[in-house]
Amino acid sequence: MGPEHWVDLHGDCLYRYALLRLRSPELAADVVQETFVEAIKGKRAFAGRSSERTWLVGILRHKIADHFRRAKRAPLNGLTSPPEDDFDHHGRWRKMPASWRGEPSRALESREFWDVFSGCLARLPHILAEAFLLRELEGVGSEEIRQRLGITAVNLWARLHRSRSLLRGCLEENWFGAARRPAVGEQTSRYAKGSVRS
């Protein structure tokens, strides 16, 4: 089976994945090319342990990681804080999640929402994004992701949790209206009390 066939079979899928992470069509096409070249070199090593697609996406992930390492792209504002920052030393919310204005499910019908959403996704640090996309985009089970990335279950869950917190915060800031503070008299729990800044 010739390489042409490979490109036709998997090219679109790899390209879309790369585009989601890199947001530049040129860059995405570049890493897809690098991925196929690398794949051809390692064809013998493949040995059919996983599906061809899984194997290629694995190489692509490494190529994207290389890109981020080279570019040393710093995550943008709001996506840099360590997880502990969401909570004080008692484990209480420092800043309570805002009530999202509008009907969130309606947002899914808006084109602008998807621009914001993919913008937020692209801003996730790579180490988090690869775990998160495997889990939430491709729907791969925890156990398999754990093995593919070679990390412990606890580490995986921590990465997924962190990804969700960052994405949530990014959407709140850029779409659901962060400026809104809890209204006077709005009920807060005893855990959140005192941590709501007004």
């Binding site: 989601l20 985009l137 491709e138 949530r168 959407l171 005893r190």
Partner: peptide, 26 residues
């Protein structure tokens, strides 16, 4: 009784739904 955690739970569930739709949109 915890508004903050209720919102958090709801909102990350929304993310989950959004990601499912993103997979279709991809």
């Amino acid at each position: 009784y915890c508004t903050a955690c209720r919102r958090y739970t709801r909102q990350i569930t929304f993310l989950h739904i959004a990601m499912e739709q993103l997979a279709d949109r991809m």
